[in-house]
Design a binder for these strands. Sequence first.
DNA 1: AGCCAGGCCCATT
DNA 2: AATGGGCATGGC
Length: 276
Amino acid sequence: MFYQNDAIIVDANYFDAKAILECGQLFRYGKTQEGYFVISGDKRCLITPCEEGYKLNSDDIEYFNNYFDLDRDYAAIIERLKQLPYMQKPCEYGKGIRILSQQPYETLISFIISANNHIPRIKAIIERLCLTLGKKCNGYYAFPTAEAMASKDPDFYAKLGAGYRAAYLAKTARAVADGTVDLQSLYRLDTKAASATLKSLMGVGQKVADCILLFAYRKTDLFPVDTWVKKIYSDMFGNLPSDNIVRNKLIDIYKQDAGYAQQYLFYYKRETKLTL
DNA sequence: AGCCAGGCCCATT
DNA sequence: AATGGGCATGGC
């Protein structure tokens, strides 16, 4: 990896653009003629294949250096995980995944929308949200602020197609905008305390809280349990207890790396549909 | 056509 | 604390 003015060149070995974008962490991405684009908050990054791997371009390349977690040694993480049960094939398959550092508010709203929903529809709802309430940038729209979203009623979000999540969006945006919950303060809390705060927000249960803590706050001693993880658990143990028991069991197996393990397992299962 | 999707809220027990 | 019904929408 090295810097070149407003660009970073990354080695393709532990940076797989398709895997990073399509492993379900983020929803604002797409293809360009040359490669891919990602939008985070009010910033954009272009990702184009090159001889060494990929070239990342942005007006704020330092931001995306942190966003893509480029200073971390993923080879070491994978070495640790491969010692643990069921991780050989998922780690090979998703070797180029990286856990992102996304914006907390954007991640909060995005994963409220994600509940009981398909990824293509989640992406479409979020794009309409940005188009109608986000700041116009050069060639794209920023993710809206809590203040912008707090000014709208549930009916507005229903018309965006958010379904029964419309009321959650309006209420949670207001709670953030009026300071009832301070998202910045959660970086300093441990997983359990931060999780309790997030779950006080309307539309945030255990699974959504886990996704926010993993994909925005980089906490990894957790395990988001969704329908795909339930399939994975059934493959592993041949039964399916309650979500909370599934979560605790999987955290017990993968410990501090549970969040990473979950992401490799999720991507492997969802892409291949293979039995573990 | 019907099932399912990165689940949550709420009432009941 | 644990369980179960209801839920908007649209991809496949």
